[in-house]
Design a binder for these strands. Structure first.
Lengths: 183, 183
DNA sequence: AAGTTTGTTAAAAATATATTTAACGTTTTT
DNA sequence: AAAAACGTTAAATATATTTTTAACAAACTT
């Protein structure tokens, strides 16, 4: 193998590594552990990988790869694939960033809406009790009303988030914001 | 002060605490420290607060409040307000979730686009060098092309994210997804 | 059936992050 | 000018998270 071939191979690796670094840093910011972030970024340039290949490539322990890949499966950044012949499990990275975006943010936002809306509505019920209570002083009632209104107002946001999730899931958002707009 | 007044006050506090807990947990998931998350959620129900009030309310150290409030200012969840008379600084929480959404995600997505697009374009230049290099073997060229095309494809996503940020910043997204849609 | 291979679980070690205590520098009050 | 108030920085402590090593269980091979 010639030296210039070596140089080209090294240059390809360097090119990949630049992108791997950027993707991993981004994933890290999205709350993945460094090992899961690096793993996903590495898999982004591979067809498929086994646990042992991951361990070799990232020079990390097998349990670390095992937990990382499971976490990535949970958030649907990686899927298990059936490979006949080999006993080893093989995994494939999701390479469509639109799909990753959809799964990641929709999941996050739905959780947020559910949790906060439930708390908000329970709180509003409590506040209504206080407002209706004939023994409450006018000051107390006024305070309860103030918070009730603030919470009512905030619900607009949660409803909007719900709509946003729906429009992403259905793909309708791409009618408004097309995918192929240039620069 | 009567007992039923006490009961009402307690009920109001409970109502607030439910929402505070939910907001704080969400913020936590968004990468804030517990202390900053709790602080923001607490401030959500207050007109304004000084550092000492924060310390008393959350029963935490002053430096902890100081760092937390600075972090919250950075991401524009809290603003410093001028209060005449008092030497103490006063802070106000952003109560419009739409604005918080805009600032938080636009910042995050712009960072992601800048970072990943830069890395992608640098990588593509390297790959073009390899492809153009007359000493590269056909196999090497084919490999370089494969990665080049994969990167080119991914740019569609970054362009779309850029458009999404623009439509949120400009408010145009609300023409497509109105704020006041009911349930 | 004994011995491998593969992947996971559990405990331990390593690392990173969050929070507090103590010290400092400014500004203000007396 | 000395003392107090306020906020921040730096070092130390506490806590949580991540990763590894070691032990295990299940499936397969011989």
């Amino acid at each position: 193998m010639s030296e210039s071939t070596d140089r080209s191979k090294i240059k390809i690796e360097e090119a990949k590594d630049k992108v791997i670094g950027a993707i991993a840093e981004t994933m890290d910011l999205y709350g993945l552990t460094p090992s899961a972030a690096n793993l996903y970024a590495t898999m982004y340039f591979k067809d498929q990988m086994t646990l042992d290949e991951m361990r070799t490539e990232l020079e990390m322990s097998k349990p670390s790869m095992s937990t990382s890949v499971r976490k990535l499966q949970e958030i649907e950044m990686v899927k298990k694939t059936f490979t006949r012949g080999s006993r080893k499990h093989t995994y494939v990275a999701e390479k469509n960033f639109f799909r990753s975006f959809m799964v990641f943010y929709c999941h996050m936002w739905e959780r947020e809406v559910k949790m906060n809306l439930e708390a908000t509505e329970e709180a509003q019920e409590d506040l209504i009790d206080v407002i209706k209570d004939p023994t409450s002083t006018p000051e107390i009632v006024a305070e309860a009303k103030k918070y009730y209104d603030q919470l009512e107002e905030s619900k607009t946001y949660y409803h909007w988030l719900t709509d946003l999730v729906a429009s992403i899931r259905s793909g309708k958002i791409f009618e408004f914001l097309p995918k192929d707009q240039q620069d």
